[in-house]
Every structure is written in structure tokens, then in C-alpha cells.
């Protein structure tokens, strides 16, 4: 089939070649490698490349994997909830209460946590939450508690706090953008039609900021499942998550195929939950209009 391309099509293809190659090399190839690995097995030092579902069978049979995945999803869910609930008021404040000329300054300030490395921020939380940390010694000096609190470090709570802080800007920015796009005369129209400020928020601002909220939820929820540094450092024995297990399989137990299968399972769970959330949201929005 000798199809002739117009010069415009040729130019478009020329322009697309580079990014397309880039995307294939950086996204599709690693993903395919993981998928392939998950159907192979590890024979001591070598990888056996005969196709098998053994890895998935093992994951389904041993309860440890399921409970880790469950805990991971729970932590991600909590982190998402905390982050978005805290981010919304901040985004709202910057969008509605800050003078237009100061908004970029505020956004700049919000990104300050990014200036230090992720690891350093995690360690900072260790200093704050630790047994002799800022919170405990502060409360003891104030005479509010006698013994240091132990439920704030080396468990799931510490993981949630640290991750929620790390992802805050990711949640604030999409919500801010969605709020910025709302035509202010719509809010006045709602008040003009008899609604109070609170009802105006519920009937106009919130539904119109939904796209930003959905983006924030996905942006926080999806990467937190894959995070293993924070649970490693902050989670203690009871705070390990599925990502830690994947890391252990790949690096310590030298069982890349099982690690790959775990990664695929985790990925599919996240995809399923995200799609379900987006779908619910669509339904909800459509149900209202």
C-alpha cells in the first residue's frame, strides 16, 4: 500500500517521532519488561523464562501480600483524604482571599517544601515526631504529658503525616487552578438569587472545582501506593507497605519476577480504584445536571 502522505502529515510525523520514541523508551518498554518478568520465575541465580502464573498464584495464596496491599491502600486513602481536606482551604484562601498581585508569591511559598530533598523532609519529620523529638519534649516541658507519646513515630500514623506533608503542594495546585477558573460573577449570581455564602459554596464553588479535586485525589493517591522510602524510615515494623515488599523482592531476596508480579498487582489495584473514583464522580456530576 503505497499511501502518499501530504507534506503536512509528513511534517507532523517528523515532529512526533522524537517524543514518541522517548515515550516508548521511557514508559512502554519498562512497563513491558515488568509485565514479562512477572510471568517468569527465579531459579537461584538465573531467571527461568518459561511462561508461568506461579508468581500470581503465590501472591493469591499467601495472606501476607494481601494484608500488605490492604494496608497500603488504607494508608494511601488516609493520606489522600488528609492531604485534600487540608489542601482545599489553602487553595481556596489563595484563590479567593489573596490579592491578585500577591497570588504568585503565595504559590511560590507553597512550593518551599520542595526546595529540600524528599529524604531530608522525611528525616525532619523524624526529628519532630521522635521519642525525644520536638513534639514530645515540648509537651513534656509544658507538663502536659509525663511519658513521651509513642503512637506518633514508627507506625502508620507517622507515615500518613509525612506523606500528607510531602504531597500537599501537589494537591493544592490543581484545586487552586480549578478555583481560579471559576467566574466570580457566578458567585454573585448565586447570592443574587437568594443563596447565602455557605450555600453558594456548596451549590456553585464546590461542584465547579470538582475537576481540580479529582485531579488532586488522583495525583496524591496513585504515587503514595508506590512510595517505600517513608514507610521504611517512619513506619517501623508495623508500618511496612506493599512497596517495601516489592523493594525487598527485587533487591534483597533477588526475586525480581515475584517483585514484578507484586508491582503489577499493586498497579492494577490502583488503576481499578482510580477508575472507580473517576466513574463515581462522573455519575455524581451528571446526576446533578
Amino acid at each position: 500500500m503505497a499511501t502518499r502522505f501530504s507534506s503536512e502529515q509528513k511534517r507532523t510525523m517528523g515532529l512526533l517521532t522524537a517524543p514518541f520514541t522517548y515515550a516508548i523508551l521511557l514508559l512502554a518498554v519498562p512497563l513491558l519488561a515488568i509485565v514479562l518478568f512477572s510471568f517468569w520465575t527465579q531459579d537461584f541465580m538465573e531467571v527461568n523464562t518459561t511462561f508461568t502464573l506461579d508468581n500470581y498464584r503465590e501472591i493469591a495464596e499467601k495472606p501476607i501480600y494481601f494484608s500488605l496491599l490492604q494496608r497500603s491502600l488504607f494508608v494511601s486513602f488516609c493520606v489522600t483524604l488528609v492531604t485534600v481536606v487540608l489542601a482545599y482551604p489553602v487553595a481556596y484562601f489563595v484563590s479567593f482571599k489573596v490579592q491578585p498581585s500577591r497570588k504568585s508569591l503565595w504559590l511560590f511559598l507553597i512550593t518551599i517544601p520542595f526546595w529540600t530533598s524528599y529524604l531530608i523532609r522525611v528525616f525532619l519529620w523524624k526529628v519532630i515526631l521522635g521519642y525525644n523529638g520536638v513534639i514530645n519534649s515540648g509537651l513534656i516541658n509544658l507538663g502536659i504529658i509525663e511519658e513521651p507519646l509513642t503512637f506518633i513515630l514508627y507506625n502508620v500514623n507517622a507515615v500518613i503525616i509525612t506523606l500528607a506533608h510531602a504531597f500537599a503542594p501537589f494537591a493544592i495546585l490543581p484545586i487552586f487552578v480549578a478555583l481560579e477558573k471559576i467566574d466570580r460573577s457566578l458567585l454573585e449570581a448565586s447570592q443574587d438569587l437568594g443563596e447565602s455564602k455557605l450555600m453558594t459554596f456548596l451549590r456553585v464553588t464546590l461542584p465547579l472545582s470538582m475537576p481540580g479535586l479529582v485531579a488532586a485525589v488522583l495525583i496524591v493517591f496513585i504515587p503514595t501506593i508506590g512510595d517505600y522510602v517513608t514507610p521504611e524510615l517512619m513506619g517501623g515494623a508495623g508500618g511496612k507497605l506493599i512497596a517495601n515488599m516489592i523493594q525487598v523482592q527485587f533487591l534483597q531476596l533477588n526475586n525480581a519476577p515475584l517483585g514484578a508480579a507484586l508491582a503489577i498487582v499493586a498497579m492494577l489495584s490502583v488503576t481499578a480504584i482510580s477508575l472507580f473514583f473517576v466513574f463515581l464522580n462522573r455519575r455524581w456530576l451528571r446526576g446533578r445536571s
Partner: peptide
């Protein structure tokens, strides 16, 4: 404004984009 006996037709119309025509009118 919500307690005044006035209603306004805005220069930009301010039609709620997330609602249908009927829902806008019934707002």
C-alpha cells in the same frame, strides 16, 4: 444581596455552567 428584593442580569449573564437550562432557571 441574597436578602434584597432585587435580582440582577449580569453583563456576562453568569449562567451556571454545571447546570442545565432548567436547573439554572430553578436555581
Amino acid at each position: 444581596p441574597n436578602l434584597r428584593p432585587t435580582n440582577m442580569v449580569f453583563q456576562s449573564y453568569a449562567i451556571f455552567p454545571h447546570l442545565s437550562v432548567a436547573e439554572n432557571v430553578a436555581f
